[in-house]
Design a protein around this nucleic acid. Structure first.
Length: 437
RNA sequence: GUGGGAGUCGCCUAGUGGCUAUGGCGGCAGCCCGCUAAGCUGUUUGGGCUAACGCCCAACGGGGGUUCGAAUCCCCCCUCCCACGCCA
């Protein structure tokens, strides 16, 4: 959510930004916010005045009783006071309505974009800013990654479809171990960089969830738990962001760097041809996520660090990738800037998203009310400011498994284990096809 | 899940319908003091108005209700503690 004060004071910045996004609907919403804000202030002033008069009369009643005034005088004052609450009620109702309308509109306004975000209408206009290694050609007659996974005894899609429907998998044997190896590898890397490993709750209530994501996601992405005010998390970013809602960090305790480990649940996975079966798009997958709370002045520095960590992981896996800057038409509501890593998938001859790194600036922290204290607590010049939050994939296991399967597939049908993962695999260096009878 | 207890300012705490929600600790600022560390005064939530001194409103876990007036009374919900039960 944008800070109301910021919207009030800088409507021209937001207007310019919405033009960049080519979003006419939100321009109207901005005007609504500004109008409701003025209305609300006026109602507030009237309401305060009414409440004041009520307080004054009430005090007089109290005084009369104490002075043992005549019952008649007391009743007279009471009667006078009795008129006020109905007036107050009316204004309070109006206040609540306008306040709700204001908030609903405010929540629809997207974050202000960083000036470096490329302008473009959709994902086709994202900008490639870096590549690692050259794209490779597939081995002749290369099967799909799902077929390879099954042939090495690493997955059972028929089995998962039978018990859970499409969009799930049983990972088995060497591939199940490889998933754990990836997670441990990424966690070790991040722990060495000063990240604290976090295993968060995987359900969150609606009120808190609204602070970390946009409303669309509730309909399209998130699973609601029936009979409970709870949603399955779509990423550990969400509980890690919400963790410190309604609290104040000490300036010197920042940055807080977290490495979240969790399953992720997503309703919308679409049908994407060759991806429909396999490990690329699932209703449930595991992910190691980087998350940072920091001072506003330092967020771009940490944005680079998160991106660098993700890149280093893919470099060590030694898989070709490109880095893409997400354009204005594709970036969504929350991030001020977003860079994706797209790994190379040789069989499909395409780069596909495996990492997404965002600087959310104060968009999440405003919604969740997460501040930090500038200077010492209690000091005369003590000030509180919203923190910045950032998040980035470290490794989304299933997508990465697919990338490993395709990039490390050998002509004999085996999949070589990337060197950096071998120590995490009990020394296993290759997953070989299993002969079926 | 059942029964009992609790939730008040950063922390502890007083407060059973009416002055401005006590008091302490901690923090911050100022004063005092030649002596080992205290003492005194002020301050310590959010919002609105004002050039400023100030003025006003809201806030006692959350949401409703009763009342001229609610931390206090009533209803619903949440969280924590204790006991019992169930359980990986």
């Amino acid at each position: 959510m944008l800070e109301l004060k910021f919207v009030r004071e800088n409507p021209q910045i937001i207007r310019a930004d919405l033009h960049k996004r080519n979003d006419r609907e939100k321009l109207d919403i901005l005007e609504n916010v500004l109008n409701f804000d003025i209305q609300l202030k006026k109602i507030q002033a009237d309401l305060d005045e009414l409440r004041h008069s009520r307080n004054v009369v009430s005090k007089r009643v109290s005084q009369l009783i104490k002075d043992k005034a005549s019952a008649q005088d007391i009743e007279k004052s009471k009667a006078e006071a009795a008129i006020i609450p109905t007036k107050i009620e009316k204004f309070e109702l109006e206040y609540k309505m306008v306040q709700k309308a204001l908030e609903q509109n405010l929540m629809k306004l997207p974050n202000v974009l960083d000036s470096s975000v490329p302008t473009g209408k959709d994902s086709t206009e994202n900008k490639i800013i870096k590549t690692f290694k050259e794209p490779t050609s597939p081995i002749a007659n290369m099967p799909t990654h799902a077929e390879i996974a099954e042939s090495i005894g690493g997955a059972d899609f028929a089995g998962s479809a039978k018990i859970s429907g499409a969009g799930f998998t049983f990972l088995t044997g060497g591939l199940a171990r490889l998933e754990l190896a990836l997670e441990l590898f990424a966690l070790d890397y991040l722990a060495a960089k000063g990240f604290t490993i976090v295993n968060p709750p995987i359900m969150m209530n609606r009120e808190v969830y609204q602070g970390v994501t946009d409303l669309q996601d509730f309909e399209q992405v998130m699973y609601k738990i029936e009979g409970m005010d709870a949603f399955l998390i779509a990423t550990s970013e969400h509980p890690m962001a919400a963790w410190h809602s309604n609290s104040v960090f000490d300036e010197f305790s920042l940055p807080v760097k977290l490495a979240g480990i969790s399953p992720c649940f997503r309703k919308e996975i679409g049908a994407h041809g060759v991806d429909t079966k396999g490990l690329f798009r699932l209703h449930q997958f595991n992910k190691i996520e980087q998350f940072v709370y920091c001072k506003p002045s330092e967020s771009w520095q940490y944005f680079e660090q998160l991106m660098d960590n993700a890149e280093q992981i893919w470099r060590m896996l030694d898989i070709p990738y490109q880095v893409v800057s997400i354009c204005t038409g594709d970036i969504g509501t929350v991030a001020a800037k977003k860079l994706d890593i797209e790994a190379w998938f040789p069989r499909e001859q395409a780069y596909k998203e495996v990492v997404s790194c965002s600087n959310c600036t104060n968009y999440q922290s405003v919604g969740l009310n997460i501040k930090y204290r500038i200077g010492k607590q209690g000091a005369i010049d003590e000030q509180k400011e919203f923190v910045h939050t950032l998040n980035s994939t470290a490794v989304a296991t299933t997508r990465t498994l697919r990338a490993i399967i395709e990039n490390y597939y050998q002509a004999d049908g085996s999949v070589t284990i990337p060197k950096v993962l071998v120590p995490y695999m009990n020394g296993i260096e290759s997953l070989k096809p299993i002969n079926r009878k």
